Amino acid sequence: MTRLIVAAGGGGDAVAAAMVDTALNRDAEPAVVLTYAWDRLLIDPVPGPRGPANFTGLKAITPSVYAVPGDARPIAPAGSTLPRLAAELPHTFALIDPHAGVHGITQQLQDLIEHLAPDTIDLLDVGGDILAKGDEPTLRSPLGDALTLAACCQLSVPVRLLIAGPGLDGELPAEQLHERLGPKLLSLTAEHTEPVSSVLEWHPSEATAMLAATARGTRGLCEVRDAGLSVPLTDEGPALHQADLDDALSRNELARAVLSTTSLEEAEQHSREICGYSEIDYERNKAMWLGNQDERELDPGAVFRELDQFEEEARGRGITHTTFRRLTEALGYSGSQRTQLRELLISNRPEQYQAPLWHISEGV
């Protein structure tokens, strides 16, 4: 039995796909995961998603679709988590190339489906922002989801839309999603996170980290991103729902607008018109700002003084947990220092590490 999972929005959805695949098909062969190479600026200093031309060592599956094996490498200055993901997990990770717009993604999907003849095709989104209308003020990264949704809706074969961890991406609150979700299929458990345990130690995805944490029983209020958004960690966190694909397209104005696009630039312009921004513009501006910043020396004494102050303020906001991405940016360090900072904190205060999140201390 061959299964295809389309990771709707990026690298975090690809990691979640491995968890969902374990939950739904424990004893079957690992699924093929079609995913973007779009790791944001913590990993990739180049704004926007990467295409095949940005890698060496890819393997052609079809004329339009390439697998990213463990020995593939992004071409500098680009960065990508996909080769390491492929090296650590048994799944085949195939690359979505969005540079020819939805037309190109649809062709890639059609080629892959013809080649694989999969028994099932799932479109997976962590958090549920794929169910947005497009004008919600809390949306931050709707473009990737809109492109994959639009492409999947043009296929002549059935596609199941799966939503894992409603609200965990910090974009649409879980209560706003309830009426848009279909039946609950299952709740992920700690057992389902085991295959990706090593990945969660280094992968930067915040939504998938919270998905795994809630599956392991963590509850509270988690602060994420550079903006410090707070995301509730509840019993609904590890839930996996099925939603209606056609309803999602009819609701998602951006997805409908990009249906006939033939370039990523064209899709970006639709995002600016409908959502008021392009997330790649945000990445461009942030990359320029980061390029003008000097990297701070990671001094342990300063780190723990600043951490104590951050935690005191976070407790005042009712925060119980945070991500290492949030800590890295809140303490003023660069994305390249995230791993070093994480290792420093865990080695000195292991009791606060509730994998893969950081638990805010209770204070004195």
Rank of each mutant, 00 (worst) to 15 (best):
residue 312 E to N: 09
residue 342 R to E: 12
residue 137 P to L: 08
residue 247 D to L: 14
residue 243 A to F: 01
residue 297 E to F: 09
residue 169 D to M: 08
residue 297 E to M: 10
residue 65 V to W: 04
residue 357 L to T: 12
residue 266 E to M: 04
residue 36 Y to W: 13
residue 326 R to K: 14
residue 243 A to Q: 05
residue 253 E to I: 05
residue 50 R to G: 10
residue 56 T to N: 07
residue 45 P to Y: 09
residue 147 L to I: 15
residue 153 C to L: 07
residue 97 D to I: 02
residue 42 L to M: 15
residue 229 L to G: 03
residue 15 V to K: 02
residue 154 Q to A: 13
residue 168 L to P: 14
residue 230 S to W: 00
residue 236 E to Q: 14
residue 65 V to L: 01
residue 320 T to E: 00
residue 44 D to Y: 02
residue 83 P to H: 00
residue 91 H to V: 02
residue 124 L to C: 10
residue 109 L to G: 03
residue 360 I to E: 06
residue 316 G to A: 02
residue 53 A to Y: 00
residue 293 Q to C: 11
residue 274 I to G: 01
residue 363 G to T: 06
residue 168 L to M: 13
residue 124 L to A: 07
residue 263 S to V: 02
residue 232 P to W: 10
residue 47 P to D: 04
residue 14 A to E: 05
residue 287 A to K: 05
residue 296 R to N: 13
residue 6 V to H: 00
residue 161 L to Q: 12
residue 127 G to V: 10
residue 276 G to Y: 11
residue 279 E to Q: 13
residue 155 L to T: 10
residue 100 A to F: 04
residue 128 G to V: 03
residue 183 P to N: 09
residue 210 M to Q: 11
residue 317 R to I: 02
residue 90 P to N: 11
residue 280 I to P: 04
residue 125 D to R: 01
residue 168 L to S: 13
residue 363 G to I: 09
residue 314 A to N: 03
residue 92 T to H: 01
